[in-house]
């Protein structure tokens, strides 16, 4: 473990708490102008469930196991809140991104490009590819609604920073222990790349107190 990865994981936790706070505070999944994509949250739950199949078999540390349990539980809880508790505020007509395409694409790629053709390893690879594009329904929804509440932008900032810091962690680990993992490196770069234009707007507008509006 290194500081970059620890801060990255904490940013990931922060993003989940921001989302839960937003939903509890507004008691909905849709603020006046910004919405949370159910599809993205369902994809994240799928990512954690397919990635942590080694939860009991591969004990790395108490931290690792605790975080895995938290990510699985919190992502399922968020899906539950959106699907049942705040269902009335969830408008599927706005969540129009074809999630089946990214699920299908990630599954196909995981069957072709993986480190080992075992069920667990292919599921893990699928979760890595899926996580890279899981934010697309959310970003797509932002482009449709054209703007987002500030708290939603902080959610996206934390989420984008988490994987961005993982890139730094991988550079550090390559440098210090010759750690090489092409699959997570490339997927992580794609995932962080998807946030670039969001980061640009976030830094140039939101942090200056302006509203988050897409040009």
């Amino acid at each position: 473990m290194n500081l970059f990865r620890l801060v990255a994981d904490l940013m990931h936790l922060v993003s989940i708490f921001i989302l839960l706070l937003k939903m509890q505070k507004t008691r909905s999944v849709a603020g006046r102008c910004s919405r949370i994509s159910f599809k993205t949250q369902a994809l994240y739950a799928t990512v954690f469930l397919t990635r942590y199949t080694d939860l009991f078999a591969n004990f790395q540390s108490l931290y690792n196991t605790t975080m895995k349990v938290f990510f699985i539980a919190s992502s399922l809880y968020i899906v539950f809140l959106m699907k049942f508790k705040f269902k009335a505020t969830n408008d599927p007509r706005l969540d129009t991104f074809k999630a089946q395409y990214v699920v299908g694409g990630a599954a196909a790629l995981a069957l072709i490009v993986n480190y080992a053709f075992t069920v667990q390893e292919v599921l893990w690879t699928f979760s890595i590819y899926l996580e890279a594009v899981a934010i697309l329904p959310q970003l797509f929804m932002l482009t449709k609604t054209g703007e987002a509440e500030v708290i939603t932008t902080h959610y996206l900032f934390a989420l984008g920073t988490y994987r961005g810091l993982y890139l730094v962690n991988w550079i550090y680990r390559y440098w210090t222990e010759y750690y090489v993992d092409w699959i997570v490196w490339i997927a992580g770069a794609v995932q962080t790349g998807l946030y670039c234009d969001f980061f640009y707007i976030y830094f140039t507008k939101v942090l200056k107190g302006a509203k988050f509006e897409l040009p």
Binding site: H12, D54, N64, Y115, E121, Y166, D181
Partner: peptide, 10 residues
């Protein structure tokens, strides 16, 4: 997994 190492990251 690279080189049969288990996944040690989240």
């Amino acid at each position: 997994y690279p080189g049969k190492k288990k996944h040690d990251e989240l």
